[in-house]
Nucleic acid binder design. Structure first.
Ligand code: MN
Ligand code: MN
Ligand code: MN
Ligand code: MN
Lengths: 236, 236
DNA sequence: TTAAATATTTAGTCTTGCCTAAAAATTAAG
DNA sequence: CTTAATTTTTAGGCAAGACTAAATATTTAA
């Protein structure tokens, strides 16, 4: 049975699997779902029996096709609801996670597909995370780089945040950074990887801690609308 | 703790309490929440201990102020979500109950108040049921009568349904009746209380079973838009 | 007013999901 | 390669909520 608890475990495992490791450890999962390793171990055994994941005792788990699909569907619901909360109810991006954490467990497939249509089939949620489609796979999305690894002296645009806990999101607010913010990396300090960045319009050069630079997805900035001149045939 | 189960019990008791009886019986509650009298008895004892209702063993329960408020808040959420589903996601009125039954348990007060505002502070849900306000009390609404008890030879308009299970709602669809449908009661048959009704535009007089007439709220029909002639100054 | 029918509670279990403490396996160090 | 540290599982319990069967209280009817 797909209980709220089971859904949260599967989604947590998906997150950890996407973030890198092929096999996911009991402790990591326990931490993600805020429970104990003992409870998690018991849960993993059960999820294994029921075919949502492969559990090699003492060596971690991996989602089966079936489990992966379930987890992607939860993620889809989570992110679509976040879009709704921000775009239609006026919430800030640092206020929606906990609410979506509940909404994602509402079951109806019809509901989520209609919500998707109502929202205009968005590809990204308010944190720049990719929204899975109704087929349970990620929608293709433009390439993106971590700010830390982006080339220097090129105007970039922030397109997403990695692991955007609410505290981090509020910190970005303090720094004046949000999705769509443009910036150029002037220098990467070899000491700790801090970045000197400059935002168009700002006088000052900003020093960005590596903990921030490692958690921002950026893309090459397309020319800003103001400086795009229409072709003649585009004019009425 | 306000679990989903507890919330469903409290809402069921509120429903039964509003529908008439001051004290509500264990069996009636059990039936409403689709569980057994034994399970319900245990739950009622617990709800009593926790101050949501007064339980006189063998003589039914009554919600306390505190329990009443909780139940009203669940009802508010249920009905506001139903509005959203019908008005924005294009669901039919017979498709939304089960989904709202889940959505009503999402906790955030901020969420429901913003949803209320987004919907334009509706007073009635898609079934014509009154939506409680943020203060936990019903918003005032126009007077209404059961069709069975309405005066004859007066044009009426359907403003709500009583206990609108999905099956009943679909049956109304077959009969061509929805919210806003106008009709005049020509005669009430003394045999079983069936009603002869006539809808404007229809040729035929319809015979309505008492099971239908007893479950329709009606109000005196205001003049229909078609027969209102604009004043001269309203013309361009 | 007593007996039968009905409603309610109690007793005894089960499942899910969580916990702590202890045992066992794996991994890391010396 | 053996010991120490870490990770994972097992053992034993608890609380919530549900069920069936049996006991008890209340109503209804004879
Ligand atoms: Mn969740
Ligand atoms: Mn998100
Ligand atoms: Mn419900
Ligand atoms: Mn309704």
């Amino acid at each position: 049975m797909l209980t709220v608890s089971v859904e949260n475990y599967l989604k947590a495992i998906l997150h950890l699997q996407v973030e890198g490791d092929d096999r996911v450890s009991t402790t990591a999962i326990a931490q993600k779902v805020a429970s104990t390793p003992a409870s998690t171990s018991a849960m993993l055994a059960k999820l294994g029996e029921r075919g949502w994941l492969e559990h090699q005792p003492y060596h971690g788990v991996r989602l089966t096709q079936k489990g992966h699909r379930v987890a992607m569907d939860i993620l889809r619901k989570h992110r679509l609801w976040e879009c709704f909360l921000v775009d239609y109810l006026g919430f800030e991006w640092d206020q929606v996670h906990d609410i979506a954490e509940e909404l994602e467990h509402v079951g109806s497939v019809e509901l989520i597909n209609r919500l998707d249509a109502f929202l205009g089939f968005p590809k990204l949620d308010p944190h720049g995370d990719v929204i899975p489609g109704p087929n349970g796979r990620f929608r293709t999305v433009a390439a993106r780089t971590l700010l830390t690894e982006a080339p220097r002296n090129l105007e970039l645009v922030v397109v997403g945040v990695v692991d955007g806990g609410d505290a981090f999101l509020r910190h970005l607010g303090v720094l004046g950074i949000q999705l769509g913010t443009r910036m150029t990396v002037l220098e990467r300090l070899s000491f700790d990887g801090s970045l000197h960045i400059k935002c168009p319009g700002d006088e000052e050069v900003q020093l960005l801690a590596p903990s921030v630079g490692q958690r921002l997805w950026v893309d090459q900035s397309s020319p800003s609308p103001e400086i795009v001149f229409p072709e003649e045939e585009d004019l009425q």
